[in-house]
Nucleic acid binder design. Structure first.
Lengths: 209, 209
DNA sequence: TATTATACTGTATGTATATTCAGTATAATA
DNA sequence: TATTATACTGAATATACATACAGTATAATA
């Protein structure tokens, strides 16, 4: 990335501000108004310079076809890299986990919040994982994956019930789900008889008090 | 906000996806391509319906003048409202909590992440609050305050040691700090003899696995 | 010294785009 | 039953917009 000139930086800023305020990029004419230019070509040449230097991209032929290219590592990694993640509440039996009727609300969270990426939050019911520090109403960050190892905490579905437990697979056709609470018993699943599905893996936890 | 129809929802989604992918909103014609419409007026009427129902705003006369209106309270308050919060690690005896030598790193977190605002994260050492679901190496969100009630979990400093415990004040000159783990004993503090200071209150927790 | 990049004004133009008008059809509401 | 909302096709048009071309001027390179 080449160096930006002060004037080009002003134009770039003015584009960013315009997008933030209106929700869509400016036209050449809009930039002229903001910057005090009297010719649309003043904006045009600045845009071409910014494109050449890699700060923006310009969609050919399209009106308002300017988009900001974000190369700033710091910025990319944090400030503007927040995403909405759904909180999945009580999962209705038989319905897909992320069906809209199960989504309690969406929360804003940096996508790199946990070292492992994740797909959604699950609100914990019950105390079967108490000794692992997972309490009722905690939010578990779940990564949708089938790459599970012995000892991982998994979010699994047995028949129509969703549960959070330690995972262990002592044989090819058998899975044991172990709670972290002496008041609960291990769940043994015979993969040949029972409908068993791994929704994902526990990668993090959030609790609000 | 009135109810959105399934078809209008599809159009709204398609606009959001377009913006996410290109950086600028679609034209009527673009929406037609995405949705399979054959007349630009199909897009137009959907846009007007979405505008009427408060999901988007349309800038008159401007090309691509669509902007998404975000009525989701959580999102509005947070999207760009992320802040850096320090993680306080091992607190050196006698030094101020937030002194730079104690700061492990800074993490990016929306400032309204927990319902209560907070000032920093503290990395938990030991298992004295295990039964409250607070485990070793968890990050506790701490709000600097002296407004503490019986039963709150506090971050307190006794002489030169920082500890996290349940707070109870049975008399004016006495404070009892209770662990949430049978292996630990209550700590009784005589406020007349001992150097006791409340750093803040526990308002939330984050764990990474 | 010639060349290139920056930083503009001013005019012109094809087309990209919003937007209106005229229809057709179905389902929901009053 | 009349009315309104939804969900489209199809055509027409004024204008919003990108973009090229012709200049002027200054400062920085090669």
């Amino acid at each position: 990335m080449k160096d930006i000139t002060p004037q080009q930086n002003k134009v770039l800023d003015c584009i960013k501000v315009y997008i933030k305020e209106t929700g869509f990029p400016p036209t050449r004419s809009d930039i002229c108004k903001e910057m005090g230019f009297k010719s649309p070509n003043s904006a045009e040449t600045h845009l071409r310079a910014l494109e050449k230097k890699g700060f923006i991209s310009i969609a050919s032929g399209a009106s308002r076809g300017i988009s900001i290219i974000n190369n700033d590592i710091k910025e990319e990694a944090s400030s503007y890299d927040s995403n909405e993640y759904p909180i999945v509440g009580l999962v209705a039996a038989g319905s897909p986990t992320l069906a809209s009727e199960n989504i309690e609300k969406q929360v804003n969270c940096p996508s790199n919040f946990f070292s492992t990426s994740f797909d959604y939050f699950l609100r914990v019911k019950g105390l079967s994982m108490k000794d692992a520090g997972i309490m009722e109403d905690d939010l578990i960050a779940v990564k949708k994956t089938h790459d599970i190892r012995n000892g991982d905490i998994v979010i699994a579905r047995i028949e129509d019930e969703v549960t959070v437990k330690y995972f262990r697979k002592p044989a090819d056709d058998m899975v044991i789900l172990e709670p972290a609470n002496d008041d609960f018993n291990d769940i043994e699943i015979n993969l040949r008889n029972e409908d068993f599905f791994i929704e994902g893996k526990y990668v993090g936890l959030i609790r609000e008090n």
